[in-house]
């Protein structure tokens, strides 16, 4: 049986130390060892981005990094997005703009979005679409995810959070079809 190594990481501001096999993927470390199951797994080939976390503030795919490589690094997962009991504006925006359906890609999408807005507070639609192109979603068609990130950008800038033409059948569709 392979030997284990000690790894010490800061995750969402808290320190963790554990002994793991070198081959343990970072995503398995987060999920199985630390119980942070908000980070998901969707492929074997570093394509889907369900496992996206922030490594020292930069979004990366945690299935394509070994846990031992995270030693002495600072990680942020979806569980670390809230602060002082308040949702991050991106979390609010994903809900408000219907930027999620099954929720599986959502943590990774939000973390990628947070990192984007950190480096580019007023991204264009094309910039947003490119930024999230390493995160696959099968439910939403991305349109409302784009709206959510735009909305979060506005909220972070202290502006109104509503999105013109966003979710909610805002393009003249019949809203009261049931009556």
């Amino acid at each position: 049986m392979a030997t284990t190594m000690s790894v010490s990481v800061t995750v969402n501001g808290a320190e963790y130390t554990a002994d793991v096999e070198p081959r343990m993927l970072l995503v398995h470390f987060l999920r199985d060892e630390l119980g942070l199951t908000g980070t998901h797994i969707g492929c074997d080939t570093t394509h889907c981005g369900a496992c996206t976390i922030l490594l020292n503030g930069t979004p990366i795919k945690s299935c394509t990094m070994f846990a031992v490589q995270a030693d002495a690094q600072a990680l942020t997962t979806v569980e670390g997005l809230m602060s002082n009991g308040e949702l991050n504006p991106i979390q609010e925006a994903f809900k408000e703009e219907h930027g999620l359906q099954c929720g599986y890609c959502t943590p990774g999408m939000m973390l990628t979005g947070v990192a984007l807005l950190e480096s580019s507070p007023e991204p264009s639609e094309a910039e947003i679409r490119m930024a999230i192109s390493g995160n696959l979603c099968r439910c939403t068609g991305y349109q409302n995810i784009v709206h959510a990130i735009q909305s979060a950008a506005r909220a972070m800038a202290g502006n109104d959070t509503s999105v013109d033409g966003g979710a909610g059948g805002g393009n003249g569709a019949s809203e009261g079809g049931g009556e």
Binding site: G38, K95, T106
Partner: peptide, 11 residues
């Protein structure tokens, strides 16, 4: 969405 945006969905 309350649970999904917090990473508290349970798959």
């Amino acid at each position: 969405d309350a649970r999904f945006i917090r990473g508290q969905g349970r798959y």
